[in-house]
Design a protein around this nucleic acid. Structure first.
Length: 447
DNA sequence: TCTGGGGTCCTAGGACCC
DNA sequence: TCTGGGGTCCTAGGACCC
């Protein structure tokens, strides 16, 4: 076991809120929240919004009173903007260290393998350099956490964000054991990466409340614990209470490296495209139209990865929060043989799937499709004995459509009567900021 | 009434992440 | 009135095999 590993986690502070503020400085110091699709829940908060006690995921309609009282600004999400800023964030980091050591973990988080930098650099200083570079180049504040494992880097990042004394960079490698223990003892176990709500409950019942408690727990002993669960038939069964993930988490907390950098962008194993409707839908036709949009969306991703899908699932459901409504949810999974990325065929299958599960007179709230059994297009083996041949015509058509999309924009060619955008009934996005970086007419003007 | 002992593969569902 | 979307990994249990 190598004991000389070092990972950094760089994370943009209040990412979406900061990005919005960057282009609209009048928002600075104002409580600002960014809302999910349909302006449903809060998905990002500025520092002052956090101070007001607004929780991640809180339904926006419940906050309207608070918003009025404190003059909170609520913006619809602008993913085109966030995606572009994210790209620039990663590019800046890649210019500071070897790009091979950089892994983009999420839209606002990047892991860096700093193992080979220790001999030449003071890692805390390097962390400060990264902060300064990102701030200088794209105007966003980041925090850097450094540790012997990804889990420790995440934890250090949490401390860096929480305690101003760190100046934005918290480094496990320069902490003595007593300090580590003291900090871990004061941090709740739920802050640990991969320890979610359910696990916290189980851990607490075993007397494990702090990060230190978990770090000192015996992973093997924990793995042998079982908990009762009720299965679908109402039978009570014993199930393992913790999986190997928990054992790894403990070892990572102790400073052992279990998770390496995941460099090569692997093609997706599953592609989901779905959306809640802005209003309730009872008719089949609008749902079909939405499905066409979802399939087109998913196929774009599929082709980006040069993959084909072997299964398509269509699902619909009513609004579980409307307890006065009769609830219905169902899905239909269809095998695709041979696997394909053909938009026309997949669209037909989606529509067929819908016909199997759609019943009128329910108030539908959401529909979507899932592509799975995904494999690389190049490795596609046709069944020797089937009479199906790789459809060259379809492939040429798809290639042509991709070329048109690349030249004239993604939605230039569509299948059936898909609208340019989602129809009005489908989405609510009432206060979206301009496409500052994606549309020449919306680029900010500096006087 | 009694009725083995292993394997592997697949899938649904749970839990987690952002 | 109004409650997101897109992913990954792991496990249990069933089907099947010898």
């Amino acid at each position: 076991m190598r004991t000389d590993r070092a990972f950094a986690l760089c994370d943009i502070n209040n990412a979406y809120a900061s990005m919005e503020t960057l282009f609209n400085p009048s928002l600075r110091d104002r409580p600002l929240v960014v809302l999910s699709n349909n302006d449903g829940c809060v998905v990002a908060r500025s520092a002052s919004a956090k101070k007001l006690g607004i929780k991640m995921g809180a339904p926006w309609f419940e906050l309207k009173e608070l918003a009025k009282a404190h003059d909170i600004v609520a913006l619809s999400s602008n993913y085109v903007l966030y995606g572009e800023m994210s790209r620039r964030f990663v590019a800046v980091l890649e210019s500071c260290v070897c790009p091979d050591d950089v892994e983009q973990y999420s839209i606002d988080e990047v892991f860096i393998d700093l193992s080979s930098y220790q001999a030449l650099h003071d890692l805390t200083e390097l962390g400060k350099t990264l902060r300064d570079r990102v701030a200088g180049h794209i105007g966003l504040q980041i925090c850097v956490g450094i540790g012997q494992s990804k889990t420790r880097a995440k934890l250090a990042n949490h401390w860096a964000k929480k305690h101003a004394q760190f100046g934005g960079v918290c480094n496990f490698l320069e902490m003595d054991q007593a300090t580590v223990d003291r900090r871990m003892a004061r941090t709740e176990v739920g802050e640990v990466w991969n320890v979610g709500r359910k696990q916290v409950k189980k851990l607490n019942s075993l007397g494990i409340a702090s990060v230190l408690d978990l770090a000192q727990a015996d992973p093997d002993e924990l793995l042998h614990r079982s908990s009762e669960m009720t299965d679908r038939n109402g039978r009570v069964r014993n199930q393992k209470a913790f999986s190997v993930v928990m054992a790894r988490t403990i070892r990572e907390l102790r400073g052992e490296t279990c998770y390496e950098l995941e460099k090569d962008k692997k093609p997706r194993k599953q592609i989901i495209s779905s959306r809640s409707f802005g209003e309730l839908v009872t008719q089949r036709e609008p749902i079909e139209q939405a499905l066409r949009y979802y399939v087109a969306n998913a196929v774009r991703k599929l082709m980006d990865d040069r993959s084909v899908a072997g299964t398509i699932t269509v699902f619909i459901h009513t609004n579980r929060f409307r307890t006065q409504d009769q609830q219905y949810s169902n899905h239909c999974t269809i095998d695709i043989d041979p696997p394909t990325n053909d938009l026309i065929e997949l669209t037909k299958m989606a529509i067929f799937g819908l016909s199997r599960i759609f019943y009128p007179n329910f108030n539908y709230k959401k529909a979507g499709i899932i592509l799975s059994d995904i494999q690389p297009q190049s490795g596609l083996n046709l069944d020797l004995f089937s009479d199906q041949v790789w459809d060259e015509k379809a492939e040429r058509l798809m290639t042509a459509m991709a070329a048109v999309a690349a030249k004239f924009g993604r939605d230039t060619v569509k299948i059936g009567n898909v609208d340019h955008k989602l129809p009005d009934w489908e989405r609510k996005s009432e206060n979206q900021s301009p496409l500052y970086l994606a549309d020449i007419d919306q680029v900010p003007i500096v006087y």
